[in-house]
Amino acid sequence: MPANALERALAPPSPAPMTADVVPLPRAGRPLGARLASSARHVAATTLPPLLTLAFLLLVWQIAASHDAGGLPPPSQIWTDSRELILNPFFDHGGVDKGLFWHALTSLQRVGIGFGLAAVVGIALGVLVGGSQLAHRSLDPIFQVLRTVPPLAWLPISLAAFHQAQPASLFVIFVTAVWPVVINTAVGVRNIPRDYVNVARVLRLSPLEYFLKILLPAATPYIFTGLRIGVGMSWLGIIASEMLLGGVGVGFFIWDQYNASRITDIVVALVWVGLVGFGLDRLVALVGRLVSRGASAV
């Protein structure tokens, strides 16, 4: 018996779990059932750990919160109190009494406008700062200071300048998202390899051709790094500014429910905020991968 145990201990670890991760190319002659089982194993291997972690955290939360009435509600209470909000995000009872989908959509529209503006202006400014030594010297220190100003600090100035909630919140998104785009674009433009510039000079590309055929593609990976940081920050900015400005939007919803002491609804809204923010980040990353193609793999 001990010999058998020793043998097992010395034997190399079974390779079975590794093949599940590698996703082998479908081999001819391999039965369909085995292939299905293998891909199912792969899906399970990637989705089970986070799901189990989530379940564990919910359990801890449930146990910790159920002894302390009046504080943070446990997950079971969130389910009973906010079931309609969770199950039906599309209801619309008029006014601001809407499902979370509509609130999220409003916030997303604001982000779309503000962030779109920030992307255009940010890339243009970044190209200028990256391409011209003078522009870099005169603008970069200012940008470095402005980018550290938190989104909410812009809100009073923005309100004073625009007098209305909608343009003020758009400006807050813009001014939050624009700096990372500017700074990363500028780095990308400054880091264009000398060789590409030499190729452009030997070919005598015109400034416009240089911009379209060398500069933009070479800086694309950097630009998308900036856009990804920017979209995340603008989502931070919109939630915060909506809490103060009111109207419709996820940020307003959270503040409204806080005033109505409906803590369970706030938790549901937070989950929405997190998932939408995650979706935005993945979306920009995906577009970046599609646009930059091989450029990042130099």
Partner: peptide, 8 residues
């Protein structure tokens, strides 16, 4: 020397 092809 280092080919300097445009990678995209």
């Amino acid at each position: 020397q280092n080919h300097s092809l445009l990678p995209w």
